[in-house]
Design a protein around this nucleic acid. Structure first.
Length: 427
DNA sequence: GCGATCACGTA
DNA sequence: GACGTACGTGATCGAA
């Protein structure tokens, strides 16, 4: 490492990222070390029982698949499945293939066919249950450290190009939460003992707040400054109706648009996502670009900056170099442009929570808390909290998170906190 | 045993 | 002609 230092050290100043290094990454090292050392308790008995339940349910759907297909095969093999569905059963004459010539059998493909062919729902259920079982329910107990009786993830500080952390062995940043069966797994993450409780604090709409702040778009800033529901406010603008008259469907579509914007999604992607005609998607996006002209200008400006300088940067000056931004190849260039839009947003959020982690860590030490930070999940921090400290700790966490970084244009940063006897309850 | 591929979990 | 960012893991499959 010392031999590397004379090589890399001068580059910090040369590329003007010295402050990100000194004020974020280096202080974070010890915070991260403590989190990894601390680990998380998981309820093995619960997971063992759940594993048997999932196995049973997966098998039921597997049998249904073979029944409906009229043959047995390896359902875990997408290759075999594709041949059964599209060559033998001929479910779709226009079945799409992957770049290697196999039939595509992903979730998006099967759920579209499910209306007409019940076999697809059984396949999807089988996939869901076996995924949960193999990736989480059976894997987690194997990774319990025998000395501590806890699961200790490893966070990678210099892997994700945007500045996020990543987590591996096990990845504790992708524990399920969307589906009912998935939620169950969160119940297995429990406090250290009966004197502790889990506390979870997460940023509210942090990436959209950053978009508002960086773009200065009046309409989006107004929504956050007045503490409105941002998706409802977006729907009202896009559909030109009063906020009180926004329907659930309109709000839901506006929500997809808001998230799509962050990633540079186009009409094609939005249409696919919402399963609406491409013309309707285009209409929505056109309206959006008009009503939120500041965001449009920000995105165009960011791409232009990148074309000129070859990189984009976060509020703190973390850089992402995008050598393809001026590529003559449309596909390659378009990807670089989406990266250019997304990186400052995702990266600024990463900078913010890293600063918050350092702040929380220091505050805990100053207050002499025995409670410990145990996880970071991009916009969320999880803590193993001594019960007597709960009401002391909560405001300290919220204050640290909300004050970690001041956003431009006076956009407020809001964090919310919960507690419970497992991660599902706390979140 | 390894790597590519496909699929899918999270933010 | 493609078409939404960032990751990590597990099962399968085929070449080494």
């Amino acid at each position: 490492t010392l031999q590397f230092k004379p090589v890399f050290e001068p580059q910090l100043d040369k590329s003007a990222v010295r402050r990100v290094f000194d004020e974020v990454e280096i202080p974070l090292v010890k915070v991260q070390r403590d989190i990894e050392f601390e680990g998380v308790r998981v309820d093995v008995d619960f997971l063992r029982a759940y594993s048997r339940q999932l196995e049973e349910e997966a098998r039921t759907h597997e049998e249904q698949v073979y029944e409906l297909a009229g043959q047995r095969f390896n359902l875990g093999s997408p290759k075999q499945l594709g041949e059964v569905l599209f060559e033998q059963m001929k479910l779709d004459p226009k079945a799409k293939k992957t770049k290697t010539g196999q039939y595509a059998t992903g979730e998006d493909v099967l759920s579209k066919l499910a209306k007409e062919f019940p076999i697809c729902d059984h396949i999807l259920a089988y996939r869901e249950f076996t995924k949960l079982r193999s990736t989480y329910v059976d894997a987690l107990p194997e990774l319990i450290n025998p000395r501590t009786g806890r699961v200790h993830t490893t966070f990678a500080q210099a892997v994700a190009v945007t500045g996020r952390l990543s987590s591996n062995n096990p990845n504790l940043q992708n524990i399920p939460i969307r589906t009912e069966r998935g939620k169950e797994i969160r119940k297995a993450f429990i406090p250290r003992d009966e004197n502790h409780i889990l506390v979870s604090a997460d940023y509210s709409q942090i990436e959209l707040r950053i978009v508002a702040a960086l773009s200065g778009d009046p309409a989006m800033c107004d929504a956050f400054l007045k503490n409105k529901d941002v998706h409802t406010a977006t729907a009202a603008k896009v559909y030109n109706v009063p906020e009180e008259e926004v329907t659930k469907v309109q709000r839901s579509k506006a929500k997809s648009v808001n998230f799509g914007i962050i990633y540079g999604q186009g009409a094609f992607g939005l249409a696919e996502n919402l399963r609406i005609p491409r013309a309707e998607a285009k209409e929505i996006i056109d309206n959006y670009r008009q009503e939120f002209a500041g965001i449009t200008a920000f995105m165009d400006g960011t791409i232009n900056f990148c074309r000129e300088h070859g990189y984009v940067e976060t509020v703190l000056g973390r850089k992402r170099w995008l050598r393809d931004i001026n590529s003559a190849n449309f596909t390659v260039r378009a990807l670089a442009e989406r990266n250019a839009i997304n990186s400052p947003i995702q990266g600024t959020a990463a900078d913010m929570i890293k600063l918050a982690m350092v702040k929380v860590h220091n505050a805990f030490r100053e207050n002499g808390f025995k409670s410990r930070m145990i996880l970071q999940v991009h916009d969320e921090l999880v803590f193993d909290v001594v019960k007597e400290e709960v009401e002391l700790v909560k405001p300290v966490i919220l204050e640290a998170m909300q004050s970690a970084m001041t956003l431009p244009n006076g956009i407020p940063v809001i964090a919310e906190v919960g507690q419970g006897m497992n991660w599902l309850e706390a979140h």
